[in-house]
Design a protein around this nucleic acid. Structure first.
Lengths: 375, 375
DNA sequence: ATAGAATGGTAAACTGATTAACCAAGATGT
DNA sequence: ACATCTTGGTTAATCAGTTTACCATTCTAT
């Protein structure tokens, strides 16, 4: 941004113009100024350094002195100002969760579970969690680096991004603590924690094959996502033996992770291969879209076509039919992510790459292959 | 908490014990210390006060000087440290969203939509958003007040609470900016923004009545929630004329806002009143639970019984059958909430009580009453 | 008995901004 | 021509903590 410098509202709150008269006296309700560390020091008859050391549990201070100071702190209801603490200290004890710009990303139960886990554990470790949407403007204004430069946070989680989001590399290259959650970036080797998508996909396809399904369609998520690629590769590897040389790719359609495109993808698959007896989807939303589409076409699930999802979001148990799916322990993944990011920040880890196991959850949307069922 | 003072880890990060030797030299990667306002001042040949005034767009500074300072700031890539800004300034420009302790509250699409709206608008106004779960320990340790006392935030949104959560009053009584979102607290008159539940319920019941339904069941949410009470009251008022003196209450069952209890409640209703031709639920999750339960019992929706939900969560369009429901503009409500809370903080508002209109969304789960249909 | 090391604490220099009080120089009023 | 405003900026105090030297004691060890 060369040009004139007339813009650049670094501190937008102040751009309010003059406030119209009306004798503003923003004094606190307590008569004297807020109670600070110096007041405590004075009351306890020690120096502020001592109080500070008590706050930080520095072993240098005697039990007796510590008690006396704690007593005063409790009496006057003192609580250290975290802005001052962070300003001089090394850490802010804040973490940010970076989410992609999808209009309603937070509304997605997928993110929700993750977020719950992250928040709970972060709180337990004394950290606060900031939510940030990585909109284009945000990135353009270097918002992601500002998060660190202006000392908002000590580290960030990134959830739901892919290799096209180059700005993540900026953070890593700046040497800032960053942890990808449920995403892998082989090219930049970012720290990450993920669910075992390969294992889940393997279990899923094995299960369908055991039910007698041979012609299985895959509705995969957007190919930019590493997890989507893993599911696709696993699917292909396992189905190849059953396809008599037909290209595996013709059994796969992109569902872009949404109900809507999942529905479309499903219809596309059925048109290409009317003999398909099972559909495996890369997430539950696409699976539900597929069920919806087929039901509307008069195709019964699972009697005519079985459907198997991935993720096990909350709703999957309450749809009609309820959805068989691969459970990804997203809450636990969030917990683990928080734990690991904090370790990275404290310098106790420098390469994180953990994998959490997934498991099959069988419900009503899958059954024995329709073409081999004796009726 | 009288007792001994041996606990009280006010700053848990430090409780790490000594760090094992290994010459720690935590200098930044740039050779000199991080660039601050003084460096900028020196380079621009002005005082720090001037730089500060440029940052804050104080009109006192000449265009020429401003430009010169901005130039330097850009050249050296200066960005003000927000901890220092907040420490001396009056605001932190942070807001917290307080959520109830429900294990997966964030995972609920209801909260998700709201959160999206809040975050987007807050970011646009230069505020960051903190997420906080109001667990029992959190409250017990006065975490909600600490949020202000330790200067974490300027104000809080509270989402999904009810009058049993007395701690909300603490915040209000401490004179701290607080805004209830989609909840009303008549007794404590907290600031709030809500969707028009009464209006929505009225439209819903009117619609069902117009379809010929007379015996309608209500699955309402937990009675602690004001919105649930509003729906119930509206429902009763409108149904009374059609009940021939039967008590309205026998047509209502608590579904506790979840799929599971919604399903149970629905079965309970059908048992009490086999003649019911429509079920109205206080939220979509309960409605979906009801659909699920009935489908399992072989009761067709909407051919035998119509189902109408409330909220219009994303999934409702993709269930089988898709759900007719009352749309609550949760995203917009979030946006409005952010706008209002910031106004409260700046002192431009002191009583907020806004209502956003709701509207009926007709899909597949409702049809003309089965007992009057000519077939 | 006494040098040397622990022990327990303090004073003062940071952290990086905001802001109230003040001041010099040029514009204005009489 | 002289006192009085404005303008545009500066100086220094302040926000509320942390941390590094440094200083008295008291405790060991010789």
């Amino acid at each position: 941004m060369p040009s004139d410098g007339e813009s650049s509202p670094v501190n937008p709150l102040k751009s309010e113009g003059s406030q119209s008269g009306e004798g503003r006296t923003p004094r606190r309700k307590g008569r004297s100024k807020r109670i600070g560390i110096r007041q405590v020091a004075e009351l306890a008859d020690v120096s502020v350094a001592t109080v500070s050391m008590v706050i930080n549990q520095n072993p240098k201070i005697t039990r007796a002195t510590r008690q006396r100071v704690l007593r005063v702190m409790e009496d006057v209801g003192y609580t250290p100002n975290r802005l001052a603490q962070s300003l001089s200290g090394q850490y802010t004890r804040m973490l940010a969760v970076l989410l992609p710009t999808l209009r309603h990303s937070v509304a997605d139960p997928y993110f929700g579970e993750l977020l719950s886990g992250i928040c709970d554990r972060a709180a337990k470790r004394g950290h606060k969690v900031l939510l940030e949407h990585a909109k284009p403007e945000f990135i353009k204004q270097q918002g992601h680096l500002e998060l660190f430069d202006r000392r908002f946070v000590d580290g960030v989680f990134c959830v739901g991004f892919n290799e096209r989001h180059g700005f993540l590399r900026d953070i890593a290259q700046a040497g800032r603590p960053i942890l990808a959650v449920n995403n892998v970036f082989p090219e930049w080797d970012l720290n990450h924690v993920v669910c075992d998508y390969a294992g889940g996909a393997e279990q899923a396809v094995t299960y369908l094959q055991q039910l007698g399904h041979r012609r299985i369609g895959l509705i995969h998520g957007a190919m930019e996502a590493h997890t989507a690629r893993v599911i696709r590769d696993t699917f292909c590897r396992m189905q190849e033996p059953f396809l008599d040389g037909e290209p595996c790719s013709s059994f796969m359609v992109d569902g872009k992770f949404t109900e809507e495109f999942g529905a479309q993808a499903c219809l596309e698959l059925l048109e290409r291969h009317p003999g398909i007896t099972a559909v495996f989807a890369g997430n539950d939303k696409m699976a539900l879209g597929a069920v919806h589409a087929m039901t509307h076409k008069g195709i019964r699930v699972p009697e005519d076509v079985s459907v198997l999802g991935f993720d096990d979001i909350q709703y999957s148990a309450y749809t009609t039919p309820s959805l068989s799916t691969v459970h990804t322990p997203l809450y636990d993944l969030g917990v683990l992510a928080a734990e690991r990011l904090i370790e990275i920040i404290r310098g106790k880890q420098d390469r994180v790459a953990d994998v959490l196991p997934t498991r099959l959850v069988l419900r009503e949307s899958t059954s024995i292959a329709s073409d081999i069922r004796q009726q």
